[in-house]
């Protein structure tokens, strides 16, 4: 991403918020929505444009779970660790996903295909243990099914 291109995209966001109380978090929201995460190049530009030290920008980004520093994967896998799923063996499912994809929770695979998140309750405890890939819910998942589910998305590229 070249810096002029970023600047062009940041201009309207910064113009709207510069100098206003609480501007940083609003600008970061706009950036997160626009790019899907907050790239370092963008933070460096924001630091200059808003005259806010980069350290403060990172304090805010890393404090709030909503902001991401890495690009999101193409597919988001959410493994539920809510009480019901937990009791029904979700930790085993989570470990299986982590080992198949070689990522930790909150990380994206190197090929950018999957992002793994742990969530608390997806609202369908009757199907525990539950995992979601994008908008699709998979219920009563067994360890053996994980590979099958993940590979469906892998094939699509």
């Amino acid at each position: 991403m070249c810096s002029e291109h970023i600047l062009e995209q940041l201009k309207p966001i910064v113009e709207e918020w510069k100098g206003k109380e609480g501007s940083l978090i609003m600008v970061l929201h706009a950036v997160q929505n626009h790019f899907g995460y907050v790239p370092r190049e963008v933070s460096l530009q924001l630091s200059r444009l808003l005259e806010i030290p980069l350290a403060r920008i990172y304090e805010v980004i890393t404090f709030y779970n909503y902001f991401k520093l890495e690009p999101p994967g193409k597919h988001r896998i959410s493994v539920c660790l809510g009480t019901a799923c937990y009791l029904k063996g979700a930790p085993v499912i989570l470990e299986e996903v982590k080992s198949i994809l070689s990522v930790k929770e909150g990380e994206t695979t190197k090929d950018g295909l999957f992002h793994l998140d742990v969530v608390r309750c997806l609202g369908c405890c009757g199907l525990a243990p539950v995992m979601m890939v994008d908008d699709k819910v998979y219920g009563k998942v067994s360890k053996g099914q994980v590979m099958e589910i993940v590979s469906k998305y892998g094939k699509e590229g």
């Binding site: 350290a55 920008i57 990172y58 304090e59 890393t62 520093l69």
Partner: peptide, 25 residues
């Protein structure tokens, strides 16, 4: 680092148990 020296090399990153002192990023 931030207030006496205005250098802003060090910052608090993350929150809760993950909180750490580190340069941005």
């Amino acid at each position: 680092c931030q207030n006496m020296q205005n250098v802003w090399a060090l910052s608090f990153l993350e929150r809760g148990f993950e909180t750490r002192i580190s340069p941005a990023g």
